[in-house]
Design a protein around this nucleic acid. Structure first.
Lengths: 294, 294
DNA sequence: GCCATTACCTGACTAAGGTCAGAGAATGGC
DNA sequence: GCCATTCTCTGACCTTAGTCAGGTAATGGC
């Protein structure tokens, strides 16, 4: 890794995290302690929420949240009631005053953002916001982790279901994995193959499988990226990781088949060094076959 | 201001401040409390520093710093000694253990930065770091504030000295403000004119003066931006602010003269709507004269 | 030599953010 | 109906990051 890139990231962390933090304190501080504000924000704007769920999303201690809720209750910003169906669980909702407070915090946040944009001219604002979007996008991409999972794992299954559902909508005549050449994802289990799941904040957001048939090229299967995380280069990363696994298992070629409806996928294959070859299987859903030498 | 830009800035603040913060805690937390780490960092890598100076740069309470120093001293990371020439002042320096600790924090910071870059491919790293540099640059630009100061104010005087020193190096035959048409910056004092100083973190980093002669167009003088803050659009901002002042004082034209050595300045003038006109004064250091209708 | 000022230290205090170990009530599986 | 589990709450406790009001020693201007 280039040292000047590391240095740039460090400088960014220092200046931005610090300066934005200072401004944050200036604009939002004083109004309400950070913990309470976070809670207020998470509870949202009117609906009821399980305390449990809120706690989980914020990753806070149960006792701590309880105390924060008492504080907000004392100030008349929230009401807490037992869940109608499970009286162990308690639900929380904002009162009108709570919604006003939340709107106030919202305004302060807007004011903070505006104070950053205000001294800049139109062109600079444009450049700042698009650079911010880029940083955000790439940081998000870098928070995605890949993990080798059993295809039967709930997260893997989730991805496979999403994959099938999406293809069902795209292919003429739908898609039924039971009719494909890979009716059983168990073929993507060691030692006959492997299955990778990509996660963002713990949620599965993509997957890819590799078949490792004995004495034959490895084969990419079930490459999928969730709609919300496209454009992060995730498919490319899954693909290159699967290729690395294939190489580690002694294969010098990787093959795959794909459907004509999957144009973005085919573009990816061509961009990353795959070339189209004649059909090497009789997968009913495939129109194109590709190969790459590793 | 565009609402979607405000929204983008807010999203950026949330995700970046939070995510980088979390990673920061993960990598740097536990090692040493933030306050101590900051102090350790500021004391630097071997030399001695006045406690006073360190405190000032970090903007911390004297009592607080004293306590932090005691803690670092207890851990054998720093030694504190009276200043040889002024025994009220105390100087602090890192011990060897302190330097090791600082190097350790340094490594952790590098590891943090690397952990962000690591999952990305070369192209993405390139894009991330350049977007980070852009964000940093523009946020720095937006932290610059303009203030109307008396030209005799120490910060104003600092800018004027720097201006003269720089021109002295650039012009054939040097530059002596005493020989220019504005020997006395007092002409840039209300009601005959005004003087703006740009500050970044309190330090003066640029200036610009406006002469408001009765019954004549306003005149831009002494426009200067410190070398370290060039490329932030600061000159453009000073210029447009001065023009706004001129308009507020009822002028419909602004004029200025400049030296042929100041190519960047002339580019700026042309870019922002100035057109070259015949000499309107006999300024000995000028080769070009410009005017803009407001 | 006096005295205001400067630099630092100490003690007392505060608020926020958080952890941990139960207690108590409700629930679900058997 | 019993019992382990789940969910929330409470009390006790801790660390960090400060702030504020003096106190002490050294210094510099007069």
């Amino acid at each position: 890794m280039a040292a000047d890139q590391v240095e740039q990231v460090r400088r960014f962390n220092r200046t931005v995290a610090e300066r934005v933090g200072v401004l944050n304190d200036h604009y939002l501080g004083g109004a309400r302690p950070y913990g309470q504000a976070r809670l207020l924000w998470q509870i949202g704007d009117g609906g009821t929420h399980d305390v449990r769920g809120v706690r989980e999303r914020l990753g806070l201690d149960s006792g701590y949240v309880s105390r924060l809720l008492r504080a907000l209750e004392r100030d008349g910003l929230v009401t807490v009631e037992p869940h109608p169906r499970d009286k162990r669980v308690r639900t929380v909702r904002l009162t009108e005053a709570g919604q006003r407070e939340r709107a106030f915090l919202d305004d302060r946040s807007d004011a903070l953002a505006a104070s950053l944009l205000d001294p800049l001219d139109a062109r600079q604002r444009e450049r700042l916001t698009s650079a911010m979007a880029e940083v955000e996008r790439l940081l998000t991409a870098s928070m995605v982790s890949l993990e080798e999972l059993d295809p039967g794992h709930p997260d893997a299954a989730h991805c496979l279901r999403s994959y099938a559902a999406e293809l069902g909508g795209l292919f003429d005549g739908g898609f039924d994995p039971g009719h494909s050449l890979l009716p059983d994802p168990g073929e993507l289990r060691a030692p006959r193959g492997l299955f990778l799941v990509a996660r963002l904040h713990g949620e599965p957001v993509g997957c890819g499988g590799l078949k490792l048939p004995a004495g034959a090229p490895a084969e990419i299967k079930r490459l999928w990226v969730s709609p919300g995380t496209r454009g992060l280069g995730l498919a490319r990363r899954l693909l290159s990781e699967l290729e690395a696994h294939a190489a580690r298992h002694g294969r010098d070629r990787v093959r795959l088949d794909t459907n004509k409806a999957l144009e973005a996928a085919m573009r990816l294959y061509r961009d990353t060094g795959y070339t189209e070859i004649p059909a090497f299987n009789d997968e009913p859903y495939a129109h194109h076959w590709f190969e790459k030498r590793l």
